[in-house]
Nucleic acid binder design. Structure first.
Lengths: 213, 213
DNA sequence: AATAGTTTTATAACATGTGTCAATAATGTT
DNA sequence: AACATTATTGACACATGTTATAAAACTATT
Protein backbone atom coordinates (compact mmCIF):
# COMPACT_ATOMS: atom_id res chain seq x y z
CA UNK A 1 0.00 0.00 0.00
CA UNK A 2 1.37 3.35 -1.00
CA UNK A 3 1.86 6.07 1.56
CA UNK A 4 -1.11 7.88 0.13
CA UNK A 5 -3.33 4.87 0.67
CA UNK A 6 -1.89 4.42 4.13
CA UNK A 7 -2.78 7.95 5.04
CA UNK A 8 -6.26 7.49 3.68
CA UNK A 9 -6.74 4.31 5.64
CA UNK A 10 -5.48 6.01 8.76
CA UNK A 11 -7.83 8.94 8.27
CA UNK A 12 -10.72 6.64 7.57
CA UNK A 13 -10.04 4.84 10.82
CA UNK A 14 -9.75 8.13 12.69
CA UNK A 15 -13.08 9.27 11.31
CA UNK A 16 -14.79 6.01 12.16
CA UNK A 17 -13.38 6.11 15.66
CA UNK A 18 -14.55 9.69 16.08
CA UNK A 19 -18.01 8.82 14.80
CA UNK A 20 -18.29 5.91 17.18
CA UNK A 21 -17.09 8.04 20.06
CA UNK A 22 -19.63 10.77 19.30
CA UNK A 23 -22.49 8.30 19.02
CA UNK A 24 -21.48 6.69 22.31
CA UNK A 25 -20.87 9.81 24.34
CA UNK A 26 -23.17 12.40 22.79
CA UNK A 27 -25.82 10.34 21.05
CA UNK A 28 -26.79 9.86 17.44
CA UNK A 29 -28.41 13.29 17.21
CA UNK A 30 -25.09 14.97 17.84
CA UNK A 31 -23.31 13.12 15.08
CA UNK A 32 -23.15 15.96 12.60
CA UNK A 33 -20.59 16.22 9.89
CA UNK A 34 -19.18 19.40 11.39
CA UNK A 35 -18.82 17.84 14.81
CA UNK A 36 -17.38 14.70 13.27
CA UNK A 37 -14.75 16.76 11.47
CA UNK A 38 -13.76 18.52 14.67
CA UNK A 39 -13.55 15.36 16.77
CA UNK A 40 -11.66 13.51 14.05
CA UNK A 41 -9.29 16.44 13.69
CA UNK A 42 -9.98 16.74 10.02
CA UNK A 43 -11.64 19.19 7.70
CA UNK A 44 -15.33 19.07 6.95
CA UNK A 45 -14.62 17.97 3.44
CA UNK A 46 -12.42 14.99 4.25
CA UNK A 47 -15.14 12.55 5.34
CA UNK A 48 -16.81 13.26 2.02
CA UNK A 49 -13.58 12.54 0.19
CA UNK A 50 -12.95 9.31 2.06
CA UNK A 51 -16.47 7.95 2.43
CA UNK A 52 -18.77 9.86 0.17
CA UNK A 53 -21.55 10.80 2.54
CA UNK A 54 -22.59 10.68 6.14
CA UNK A 55 -24.53 7.51 5.45
CA UNK A 56 -21.39 5.92 4.06
CA UNK A 57 -19.58 6.66 7.31
CA UNK A 58 -22.35 4.91 9.20
CA UNK A 59 -22.19 2.00 6.81
CA UNK A 60 -18.52 1.66 7.62
CA UNK A 61 -19.45 1.42 11.29
CA UNK A 62 -22.09 -1.17 10.49
CA UNK A 63 -19.55 -3.16 8.50
CA UNK A 64 -17.27 -3.17 11.51
CA UNK A 65 -20.15 -4.47 13.59
CA UNK A 66 -21.01 -7.14 11.05
CA UNK A 67 -17.38 -8.19 10.95
CA UNK A 68 -17.26 -8.42 14.73
CA UNK A 69 -20.43 -10.50 14.66
CA UNK A 70 -19.25 -12.92 12.01
CA UNK A 71 -16.10 -13.53 14.03
CA UNK A 72 -18.24 -14.50 17.00
CA UNK A 73 -20.61 -16.59 14.94
CA UNK A 74 -17.97 -18.66 13.23
CA UNK A 75 -16.52 -19.72 16.56
CA UNK A 76 -19.16 -22.37 17.24
CA UNK A 77 -20.64 -23.14 13.88
CA UNK A 78 -20.95 -26.86 14.16
CA UNK A 79 -24.06 -28.95 13.92
CA UNK A 80 -26.70 -29.34 11.27
CA UNK A 81 -27.36 -26.45 8.91
CA UNK A 82 -30.89 -25.75 10.09
CA UNK A 83 -29.81 -25.80 13.71
CA UNK A 84 -26.99 -23.39 12.94
CA UNK A 85 -29.37 -21.10 11.13
CA UNK A 86 -31.69 -21.03 14.13
CA UNK A 87 -28.83 -20.61 16.52
CA UNK A 88 -27.76 -17.54 14.58
CA UNK A 89 -30.87 -15.79 15.82
CA UNK A 90 -29.83 -16.28 19.42
CA UNK A 91 -26.37 -15.05 18.53
CA UNK A 92 -27.78 -11.95 16.90
CA UNK A 93 -29.86 -11.28 19.97
CA UNK A 94 -26.88 -11.69 22.27
CA UNK A 95 -24.82 -9.48 20.03
CA UNK A 96 -27.45 -6.75 20.04
CA UNK A 97 -27.85 -7.06 23.79
CA UNK A 98 -24.16 -6.45 24.21
CA UNK A 99 -24.40 -2.95 22.77
CA UNK A 100 -28.04 -2.28 22.06
CA UNK A 101 -28.31 1.49 21.68
CA UNK A 102 -25.19 1.68 19.57
CA UNK A 103 -26.15 -0.98 17.05
CA UNK A 104 -29.75 0.03 16.88
CA UNK A 105 -28.75 3.64 16.42
CA UNK A 106 -26.46 2.89 13.51
CA UNK A 107 -28.95 0.59 11.88
CA UNK A 108 -31.83 3.02 12.24
CA UNK A 109 -29.75 5.89 10.92
CA UNK A 110 -28.80 3.94 7.82
CA UNK A 111 -32.31 2.69 7.24
CA UNK A 112 -33.80 6.17 7.55
CA UNK A 113 -31.28 7.67 5.18
CA UNK A 114 -32.43 8.35 1.69
CA UNK A 115 -29.64 6.39 0.08
CA UNK A 116 -31.61 3.32 -0.89
CA UNK A 117 -28.78 1.80 -2.85
CA UNK A 118 -26.78 1.16 0.31
CA UNK A 119 -29.24 -1.37 1.59
CA UNK A 120 -29.02 -3.73 -1.32
CA UNK A 121 -25.55 -4.98 -0.43
CA UNK A 122 -26.69 -6.23 2.96
CA UNK A 123 -29.74 -7.79 1.37
CA UNK A 124 -27.64 -9.63 -1.16
CA UNK A 125 -25.25 -10.74 1.53
CA UNK A 126 -28.01 -12.08 3.74
CA UNK A 127 -29.72 -13.90 0.89
CA UNK A 128 -26.47 -15.50 -0.17
CA UNK A 129 -25.76 -16.73 3.38
CA UNK A 130 -29.23 -18.14 3.82
CA UNK A 131 -29.12 -19.86 0.45
CA UNK A 132 -25.78 -21.42 1.25
CA UNK A 133 -27.09 -22.74 4.55
CA UNK A 134 -30.23 -24.11 2.98
CA UNK A 135 -28.23 -25.75 0.21
CA UNK A 136 -26.15 -27.40 2.89
CA UNK A 137 -29.29 -28.47 4.71
CA UNK A 138 -30.57 -30.00 1.51
CA UNK A 139 -27.41 -31.98 0.90
CA UNK A 140 -27.55 -33.15 4.53
CA UNK A 141 -31.04 -34.48 3.97
CA UNK A 142 -32.58 -31.96 6.35
CA UNK A 143 -34.97 -30.71 3.68
CA UNK A 144 -37.48 -32.43 1.46
CA UNK A 145 -36.01 -33.21 -1.93
CA UNK A 146 -38.57 -31.12 -3.79
CA UNK A 147 -37.64 -27.94 -1.95
CA UNK A 148 -36.42 -24.98 -3.95
CA UNK A 149 -33.49 -23.99 -1.76
CA UNK A 150 -32.89 -20.76 -3.66
CA UNK A 151 -36.40 -19.59 -3.05
CA UNK A 152 -36.44 -20.81 0.54
CA UNK A 153 -33.14 -19.17 1.37
CA UNK A 154 -34.28 -15.92 -0.13
CA UNK A 155 -37.53 -16.04 1.77
CA UNK A 156 -35.82 -16.67 5.09
CA UNK A 157 -33.29 -13.90 4.53
CA UNK A 158 -35.95 -11.39 3.64
CA UNK A 159 -37.92 -12.38 6.70
CA UNK A 160 -34.95 -11.56 8.88
CA UNK A 161 -34.13 -8.30 7.15
CA UNK A 162 -37.73 -7.12 7.18
CA UNK A 163 -38.00 -7.63 10.92
CA UNK A 164 -34.60 -6.04 11.44
CA UNK A 165 -35.98 -2.98 9.72
CA UNK A 166 -38.68 -2.70 12.33
CA UNK A 167 -36.21 -3.48 15.07
CA UNK A 168 -34.15 -0.53 13.91
CA UNK A 169 -37.16 1.72 14.22
CA UNK A 170 -37.28 0.90 17.89
CA UNK A 171 -40.59 -0.92 17.93
CA UNK A 172 -39.41 -4.19 19.32
CA UNK A 173 -36.85 -5.29 21.79
CA UNK A 174 -34.04 -7.49 20.61
CA UNK A 175 -35.86 -10.46 22.08
CA UNK A 176 -39.20 -9.69 20.49
CA UNK A 177 -37.61 -9.18 17.08
CA UNK A 178 -35.76 -12.44 17.15
CA UNK A 179 -38.82 -14.28 18.46
CA UNK A 180 -40.78 -12.96 15.50
CA UNK A 181 -38.16 -14.18 13.05
CA UNK A 182 -37.80 -17.47 14.84
CA UNK A 183 -41.48 -18.21 14.64
CA UNK A 184 -41.66 -17.25 10.97
CA UNK A 185 -38.58 -19.27 10.12
CA UNK A 186 -39.75 -22.35 11.97
CA UNK A 187 -43.15 -22.28 10.32
CA UNK A 188 -41.70 -22.03 6.84
CA UNK A 189 -39.00 -24.58 7.52
CA UNK A 190 -41.64 -26.98 8.79
CA UNK A 191 -43.19 -26.86 5.33
CA UNK A 192 -39.97 -28.06 3.76
CA UNK A 193 -38.16 -30.15 6.32
CA UNK A 194 -37.57 -33.84 5.96
CA UNK A 195 -38.62 -36.30 8.65
CA UNK A 196 -35.21 -36.11 10.28
CA UNK A 197 -35.65 -32.49 11.27
CA UNK A 198 -39.43 -32.28 11.65
CA UNK A 199 -39.62 -33.28 15.29
CA UNK A 200 -37.00 -30.79 16.37
CA UNK A 201 -38.63 -27.97 14.42
CA UNK A 202 -42.13 -28.79 15.62
CA UNK A 203 -40.96 -28.90 19.21
CA UNK A 204 -39.14 -25.61 18.76
CA UNK A 205 -42.23 -24.01 17.27
CA UNK A 206 -44.39 -25.11 20.16
CA UNK A 207 -41.90 -24.06 22.78
CA UNK A 208 -40.18 -20.90 21.61
CA UNK A 209 -37.79 -20.76 24.52
CA UNK A 210 -35.57 -23.76 23.85
CA UNK A 211 -34.24 -23.02 20.41
CA UNK A 212 -30.68 -22.95 19.38
CA UNK A 213 -29.14 -23.12 22.81
CA UNK B 1 -67.73 23.43 13.98
CA UNK B 2 -66.77 27.03 14.53
CA UNK B 3 -65.68 29.18 11.65
CA UNK B 4 -62.14 28.98 12.88
CA UNK B 5 -62.19 25.21 12.80
CA UNK B 6 -63.84 25.30 9.40
CA UNK B 7 -61.07 27.48 8.05
CA UNK B 8 -58.47 25.14 9.51
CA UNK B 9 -60.13 22.12 7.99
CA UNK B 10 -60.29 23.87 4.65
CA UNK B 11 -56.64 24.84 4.81
CA UNK B 12 -55.64 21.35 5.83
CA UNK B 13 -57.46 19.99 2.81
CA UNK B 14 -55.86 22.56 0.54
CA UNK B 15 -52.43 21.64 1.83
CA UNK B 16 -53.03 17.94 1.40
CA UNK B 17 -54.28 18.48 -2.12
CA UNK B 18 -51.27 20.60 -2.93
CA UNK B 19 -48.92 17.99 -1.51
CA UNK B 20 -50.55 15.25 -3.54
CA UNK B 21 -50.41 17.37 -6.66
CA UNK B 22 -46.74 18.14 -6.19
CA UNK B 23 -45.86 14.51 -5.59
CA UNK B 24 -47.79 13.47 -8.67
CA UNK B 25 -46.59 16.13 -11.08
CA UNK B 26 -43.12 17.00 -9.79
CA UNK B 27 -42.10 13.96 -7.79
CA UNK B 28 -41.39 13.37 -4.14
CA UNK B 29 -38.06 15.18 -4.28
CA UNK B 30 -39.78 18.42 -5.15
CA UNK B 31 -42.14 18.27 -2.22
CA UNK B 32 -40.46 20.89 -0.10
CA UNK B 33 -42.22 22.89 2.55
CA UNK B 34 -41.58 26.11 0.66
CA UNK B 35 -42.97 24.72 -2.57
CA UNK B 36 -45.90 23.22 -0.69
CA UNK B 37 -46.70 26.58 0.82
CA UNK B 38 -46.63 28.26 -2.59
CA UNK B 39 -48.79 25.66 -4.30
CA UNK B 40 -51.24 25.55 -1.42
CA UNK B 41 -51.39 29.35 -1.47
CA UNK B 42 -50.45 29.56 2.15
CA UNK B 43 -47.55 30.79 4.19
CA UNK B 44 -44.60 28.59 5.06
CA UNK B 45 -45.64 28.53 8.65
CA UNK B 46 -49.20 27.33 8.15
CA UNK B 47 -48.50 23.67 7.40
CA UNK B 48 -46.53 23.60 10.61
CA UNK B 49 -49.44 25.13 12.49
CA UNK B 50 -51.96 22.73 11.01
CA UNK B 51 -49.98 19.50 10.85
CA UNK B 52 -46.86 19.88 12.90
CA UNK B 53 -44.20 18.75 10.48
CA UNK B 54 -43.65 17.65 6.94
CA UNK B 55 -43.92 14.04 8.02
CA UNK B 56 -47.31 14.77 9.53
CA UNK B 57 -48.52 16.10 6.19
CA UNK B 58 -47.42 12.87 4.55
CA UNK B 59 -49.14 10.88 7.26
CA UNK B 60 -52.34 12.70 6.42
CA UNK B 61 -51.92 11.58 2.81
CA UNK B 62 -51.29 8.03 3.94
CA UNK B 63 -54.39 8.14 6.09
CA UNK B 64 -56.40 9.19 3.07
CA UNK B 65 -54.96 6.24 1.16
CA UNK B 66 -55.70 3.84 3.99
CA UNK B 67 -59.24 5.13 4.13
CA UNK B 68 -59.65 4.65 0.39
CA UNK B 69 -58.31 1.13 0.73
CA UNK B 70 -60.57 0.16 3.59
CA UNK B 71 -63.56 1.32 1.59
CA UNK B 72 -62.55 -0.98 -1.24
CA UNK B 73 -61.74 -3.86 1.06
CA UNK B 74 -65.02 -3.82 2.90
CA UNK B 75 -66.97 -4.13 -0.33
CA UNK B 76 -66.44 -7.85 -0.74
CA UNK B 77 -65.57 -9.06 2.71
CA UNK B 78 -67.54 -12.25 2.78
CA UNK B 79 -66.24 -15.73 3.30
CA UNK B 80 -64.25 -17.37 6.04
CA UNK B 81 -61.93 -15.21 8.13
CA UNK B 82 -58.71 -16.85 6.99
CA UNK B 83 -59.72 -16.61 3.37
CA UNK B 84 -60.56 -12.94 3.82
CA UNK B 85 -57.23 -12.33 5.45
CA UNK B 86 -55.43 -13.91 2.53
CA UNK B 87 -57.58 -12.13 0.03
CA UNK B 88 -56.55 -8.85 1.64
CA UNK B 89 -53.04 -9.40 0.31
CA UNK B 90 -54.32 -9.51 -3.23
CA UNK B 91 -56.35 -6.40 -2.55
CA UNK B 92 -53.33 -4.60 -1.22
CA UNK B 93 -51.39 -5.59 -4.28
CA UNK B 94 -54.13 -4.38 -6.60
CA UNK B 95 -54.38 -1.18 -4.64
CA UNK B 96 -50.66 -0.55 -4.86
CA UNK B 97 -50.68 -1.40 -8.56
CA UNK B 98 -53.34 1.22 -9.14
CA UNK B 99 -51.02 4.01 -8.04
CA UNK B 100 -47.67 2.49 -7.35
CA UNK B 101 -45.22 5.37 -7.35
CA UNK B 102 -47.53 7.58 -5.34
CA UNK B 103 -48.20 5.12 -2.53
CA UNK B 104 -44.69 3.84 -2.39
CA UNK B 105 -43.35 7.36 -2.35
CA UNK B 106 -45.50 8.39 0.58
CA UNK B 107 -44.78 5.24 2.49
CA UNK B 108 -41.05 5.45 1.92
CA UNK B 109 -40.96 9.11 2.89
CA UNK B 110 -42.72 8.43 6.16
CA UNK B 111 -40.59 5.40 6.93
CA UNK B 112 -37.35 7.25 6.29
CA UNK B 113 -38.39 10.20 8.41
CA UNK B 114 -36.90 10.41 11.85
CA UNK B 115 -40.25 10.66 13.58
CA UNK B 116 -40.48 7.14 14.92
CA UNK B 117 -43.57 7.80 16.99
CA UNK B 118 -45.71 8.20 13.88
CA UNK B 119 -45.37 4.59 12.92
CA UNK B 120 -46.84 3.09 16.07
CA UNK B 121 -50.42 4.01 15.21
CA UNK B 122 -50.38 2.00 11.99
CA UNK B 123 -48.75 -0.87 13.82
CA UNK B 124 -51.44 -0.87 16.47
CA UNK B 125 -54.15 -0.64 13.85
CA UNK B 126 -52.78 -3.55 11.84
CA UNK B 127 -52.35 -5.72 14.92
CA UNK B 128 -55.90 -5.00 16.02
CA UNK B 129 -57.31 -5.94 12.61
CA UNK B 130 -55.35 -9.14 12.40
CA UNK B 131 -56.33 -10.12 15.92
CA UNK B 132 -59.99 -9.50 15.19
CA UNK B 133 -59.81 -11.65 12.08
CA UNK B 134 -58.04 -14.44 13.88
CA UNK B 135 -60.51 -14.30 16.73
CA UNK B 136 -63.26 -14.68 14.17
CA UNK B 137 -61.40 -17.55 12.55
CA UNK B 138 -61.16 -19.21 15.93
CA UNK B 139 -64.85 -18.88 16.64
CA UNK B 140 -65.54 -20.27 13.17
CA UNK B 141 -63.50 -23.33 13.94
CA UNK B 142 -60.84 -22.46 11.39
CA UNK B 143 -58.10 -22.59 13.97
CA UNK B 144 -57.02 -25.24 16.43
CA UNK B 145 -58.55 -24.65 19.84
CA UNK B 146 -55.18 -24.31 21.57
CA UNK B 147 -54.12 -21.39 19.38
CA UNK B 148 -53.30 -18.09 21.03
CA UNK B 149 -55.15 -15.78 18.67
CA UNK B 150 -53.69 -12.66 20.21
CA UNK B 151 -50.17 -13.83 19.61
CA UNK B 152 -50.99 -15.20 16.19
CA UNK B 153 -52.71 -12.01 15.07
CA UNK B 154 -49.84 -9.94 16.27
CA UNK B 155 -47.34 -12.14 14.50
CA UNK B 156 -49.20 -11.96 11.21
CA UNK B 157 -49.61 -8.20 11.40
CA UNK B 158 -45.94 -7.66 12.12
CA UNK B 159 -45.03 -9.91 9.23
CA UNK B 160 -47.03 -7.73 6.89
CA UNK B 161 -45.70 -4.47 8.26
CA UNK B 162 -42.12 -5.64 8.22
CA UNK B 163 -42.32 -6.58 4.57
CA UNK B 164 -44.14 -3.35 3.79
CA UNK B 165 -41.17 -1.55 5.23
CA UNK B 166 -38.92 -3.17 2.68
CA UNK B 167 -41.47 -2.62 -0.03
CA UNK B 168 -41.35 1.07 0.74
CA UNK B 169 -37.60 1.07 0.32
CA UNK B 170 -38.13 -0.04 -3.25
CA UNK B 171 -36.52 -3.42 -3.00
CA UNK B 172 -39.47 -5.47 -4.10
CA UNK B 173 -42.27 -5.10 -6.51
CA UNK B 174 -45.80 -5.09 -5.19
CA UNK B 175 -46.12 -8.68 -6.30
CA UNK B 176 -42.91 -9.88 -4.70
CA UNK B 177 -43.76 -8.20 -1.43
CA UNK B 178 -47.17 -9.74 -1.21
CA UNK B 179 -45.84 -13.14 -2.23
CA UNK B 180 -43.37 -12.93 0.63
CA UNK B 181 -46.11 -12.12 3.11
CA UNK B 182 -48.43 -14.75 1.66
CA UNK B 183 -45.86 -17.49 2.04
CA UNK B 184 -45.02 -16.46 5.59
CA UNK B 185 -48.68 -16.17 6.54
CA UNK B 186 -49.60 -19.52 5.06
CA UNK B 187 -46.76 -21.31 6.78
CA UNK B 188 -47.66 -19.91 10.18
CA UNK B 189 -51.37 -20.44 9.67
CA UNK B 190 -50.69 -24.03 8.74
CA UNK B 191 -49.26 -24.50 12.20
CA UNK B 192 -52.50 -23.42 13.81
CA UNK B 193 -55.28 -24.29 11.40
CA UNK B 194 -57.91 -26.85 12.11
CA UNK B 195 -58.59 -29.72 9.72
CA UNK B 196 -61.28 -27.72 7.95
CA UNK B 197 -58.83 -25.18 6.61
CA UNK B 198 -55.67 -27.26 6.34
CA UNK B 199 -56.22 -28.54 2.83
CA UNK B 200 -56.93 -25.11 1.41
CA UNK B 201 -53.89 -23.61 3.13
CA UNK B 202 -51.58 -26.44 2.14
CA UNK B 203 -52.71 -26.19 -1.47
CA UNK B 204 -52.23 -22.45 -1.40
CA UNK B 205 -48.74 -22.82 0.03
CA UNK B 206 -47.74 -25.27 -2.68
CA UNK B 207 -49.25 -23.21 -5.47
CA UNK B 208 -48.74 -19.55 -4.67
CA UNK B 209 -50.69 -18.28 -7.64
CA UNK B 210 -54.22 -19.34 -6.75
CA UNK B 211 -54.75 -17.61 -3.44
CA UNK B 212 -57.54 -15.36 -2.51
CA UNK B 213 -59.04 -14.93 -5.94
C1' DA C 1 -69.10 48.31 17.62
C1' DA C 2 -65.20 47.57 20.69
C1' DT C 3 -62.23 44.61 22.78
C1' DA C 4 -59.73 40.35 23.44
C1' DG C 5 -58.05 36.17 21.66
C1' DT C 6 -56.40 33.35 17.91
C1' DT C 7 -54.51 32.27 13.43
C1' DT C 8 -51.98 33.49 9.43
C1' DT C 9 -48.41 36.02 7.24
C1' DA C 10 -43.86 37.93 6.24
C1' DT C 11 -39.38 37.86 7.10
C1' DA C 12 -35.49 36.40 9.07
C1' DA C 13 -32.77 33.05 11.16
C1' DC C 14 -30.55 28.52 12.39
C1' DA C 15 -28.63 23.82 11.86
C1' DT C 16 -27.53 20.41 8.76
C1' DG C 17 -25.98 17.64 4.59
C1' DT C 18 -23.70 18.56 0.69
C1' DG C 19 -21.30 20.97 -3.16
C1' DT C 20 -17.84 24.45 -5.23
C1' DC C 21 -13.39 26.24 -5.83
C1' DA C 22 -9.04 27.96 -5.14
C1' DA C 23 -5.03 27.42 -2.26
C1' DT C 24 -1.94 24.48 0.11
C1' DA C 25 0.33 20.44 1.49
C1' DA C 26 1.75 15.83 0.72
C1' DT C 27 3.22 12.30 -2.27
C1' DG C 28 4.85 10.05 -6.49
C1' DT C 29 7.81 10.40 -10.64
C1' DT C 30 11.44 11.88 -13.44
C1' DA D 1 15.81 18.59 -7.04
C1' DA D 2 11.99 19.77 -10.01
C1' DC D 3 7.75 18.78 -11.63
C1' DA D 4 3.17 16.52 -11.76
C1' DT D 5 -0.42 14.32 -9.37
C1' DT D 6 -3.32 13.79 -5.62
C1' DA D 7 -5.41 14.87 -1.06
C1' DT D 8 -6.62 18.08 2.31
C1' DT D 9 -7.98 22.44 3.76
C1' DG D 10 -10.72 26.66 4.27
C1' DA D 11 -14.12 29.60 3.29
C1' DC D 12 -18.21 30.02 1.31
C1' DA D 13 -22.65 28.82 -0.67
C1' DC D 14 -27.07 26.45 -1.26
C1' DA D 15 -31.35 23.84 -0.23
C1' DT D 16 -34.08 22.17 3.27
C1' DG D 17 -36.77 21.39 7.71
C1' DT D 18 -37.77 23.99 11.35
C1' DT D 19 -38.26 27.85 14.68
C1' DA D 20 -38.66 32.84 16.21
C1' DT D 21 -40.82 37.21 16.11
C1' DA D 22 -43.66 40.79 15.15
C1' DA D 23 -47.33 42.58 12.34
C1' DA D 24 -51.64 41.88 10.18
C1' DA D 25 -56.02 39.60 9.52
C1' DC D 26 -59.57 37.20 11.29
C1' DT D 27 -62.95 35.49 14.79
C1' DA D 28 -65.37 35.40 19.14
C1' DT D 29 -67.29 37.76 23.02
C1' DT D 30 -69.20 41.48 25.30
Amino acid sequence: MSRREEAKTFNRARICAAAESIIRSEGMDNLTMRRLAVVAGVSLRTPYNLFGSKTDVLIALLDEAVFKFTQLGLAHSDGAAIARMLRALGQIETFFDSDETYYRGIYAAIMTSDHPEVRSTSVDRAIASARALMAEAMSNGELRADTDVQSLGRHLAITLLAVLGMWGSGFFSNRESMAQVRRAWLAVMLQHCSDTSRLMLAAAYDNPSNIGD
